[in-house]
Amino acid sequence: MAHAHTTTDIIYGLYTDETDLLHAVKQAGDAHMDIWNVYTPFPVHGLDPLLGLSESRLHIAGFIFGSLGLLTAFLGMSWIFTRDWPVIFGGKPYWPVPSFIPITFELTVLFAAIGMVVTFYTVSGMGPGTMYPILDPRITDDKFCIAFDKTSMTGSDVDAINNFFENTGAAEIHSKEIA
């Protein structure tokens, strides 16, 4: 990810097919090349293990927020009907657990969904108006991009990367300095 207040010198190759991208990423991994980031127009399956990305933990966040919703709803209703303001409705008990099921379920889902979505945008650093430097506008169209950070690379390292891009069938190779 880009660091604040420093410029990063990026060299990136664009591929036209996800198959080529996967082969290239695999080759880069085998050669122990340090990939800065990979950008694709749609989720490419099989990419995560090649990049060594660990499984997303969003579902854990979902479980925690869902549990919070469940407890909020159930304990909240229980407190209201048994402690704060007990009322007899149609001769039923003060604590009518089956009646609480629908609202408890709904709030579990509501909390889980809102919590997960907020977590997703927070950990991904995204939100309304967030701006990230865009390496190439065609990445969201039809280009698959592998980017390397060449800020601290020597000339021969850059040559190696150029060779790598050419050998793996990159359609285009570009450099870009990003803030």
Binding site: N37, V38, Y39, T40, P41, F42, P43, V44, L47, D48, L51, L53, S56, L58, F120, Y121, V123, S124, G125, M126, G127, P128, G129, T130, M131, Y132, I134, I139, T140
Partner: peptide
């Protein structure tokens, strides 16, 4: 929301 298409973002 500043979407870039990064691999990790797609995964999440």
């Amino acid at each position: 929301f500043g979407w870039t298409g990064a691999a990790k973002h797609w995964q999440r």
